[in-house]
Simulated scan of single mutants.
Amino acid sequence: MSAKPLRVAVIVASTREGRFGPTVAAWFAGVARGRADLDIEIVDLAEEDTVTKKLGLADAFVVVTPEYNHSYPAPLKAVLDAHGEEWLAKPVGFVSYGGLSGGLRAVEHLRPVFAELHTVTVRETVSFHSVWQRFGADGLPNDPTECGAAALRLLDQLSWWGLILRDARETRPYVRA
């Protein structure tokens, strides 16, 4: 098993004006950077010119997504459809946010899409309902205990799958039908 850190791309899925995604992604990346076994890079879909390269270098992904019309943002769908090899045999975790549902409907729509892309989605998620009231002016959660614990559980699962799958890809090419 390799001792090098797992490269995790934290994807900011929204590109809308006034979006809250960068705030949530920065918080999550801060939590993840507290772990020595992870190398974290934020991939902002609003910065189209760097997306492909950053996705290709990742061993695992965390999608930070809002819920728009009971689903996920169109720019995320475009990126999912435009890339194939980058996703193969890699784990994906989700951090969602929004109104009453906390973006969980977007996550449930994403799971079968990622299955079709030959990824493994981890069970644990981080979800923020009424996100605008959950974060302070400093960009941090008002009550970091529960969401911080959820983030650590997600990262534990992502790391386990990420290391196993990275080692497997290095010893045996992934085959898809």
Score class of each variant (00 low, 15 high):
171 T>P: 00
67 E>A: 06
136 G>V: 03
73 P>D: 07
99 G>A: 12
57 L>S: 13
78 A>K: 15
83 H>I: 11
45 L>P: 11
58 A>I: 01
92 V>Q: 07
48 E>N: 13
87 W>V: 05
145 T>C: 02
71 S>A: 14
125 T>F: 07
97 Y>H: 10
91 P>N: 05
30 G>V: 12
38 L>K: 01
139 G>Q: 04
87 W>G: 06
170 E>C: 03
99 G>Y: 05
90 K>F: 04
6 L>N: 09
113 V>K: 11
43 V>A: 04
108 E>H: 14
72 Y>A: 12
64 V>N: 08
47 E>P: 11
133 Q>F: 03
161 W>K: 05
43 V>C: 13
62 V>G: 04
175 V>S: 13
8 V>A: 07
11 I>K: 07
47 E>R: 15
69 N>E: 06
44 D>H: 12
26 A>E: 14
14 S>I: 05
59 D>P: 12
162 G>E: 02
52 T>R: 15
28 F>M: 09
57 L>E: 15
103 G>Y: 07
117 L>C: 09
70 H>W: 13
127 S>P: 05
73 P>G: 08
76 L>S: 08
158 L>R: 02
105 R>A: 03
114 F>A: 11
82 A>N: 14
148 G>K: 00
143 D>Q: 12
8 V>I: 05
34 G>C: 02
118 H>V: 11
171 T>Q: 15
128 F>D: 02
165 L>T: 03
149 A>D: 15
115 A>I: 08
23 T>C: 08
105 R>I: 01
90 K>S: 02
11 I>H: 11
166 R>S: 01
166 R>T: 05
82 A>R: 14
14 S>N: 14
24 V>R: 03
30 G>C: 09
88 L>G: 09
65 T>V: 06
51 V>Y: 07
64 V>D: 09
97 Y>L: 07
61 F>C: 08
130 S>W: 04
146 E>N: 12
11 I>M: 10
108 E>T: 13
82 A>F: 10
65 T>M: 04
134 R>D: 12
8 V>M: 04
12 V>I: 14
167 D>E: 11
139 G>M: 02
88 L>D: 14
144 P>S: 05
79 V>W: 03
139 G>W: 00
38 L>Q: 05
69 N>C: 07
150 A>V: 09
35 R>W: 02
141 P>L: 00
62 V>S: 02
56 G>I: 11
132 W>Y: 09
83 H>S: 13
12 V>E: 13
101 S>V: 01
125 T>D: 10
124 E>M: 08
98 G>R: 06
177 A>I: 06
176 R>A: 13
172 R>K: 15
97 Y>G: 04
112 P>S: 10
70 H>P: 03
36 A>G: 01
149 A>H: 11
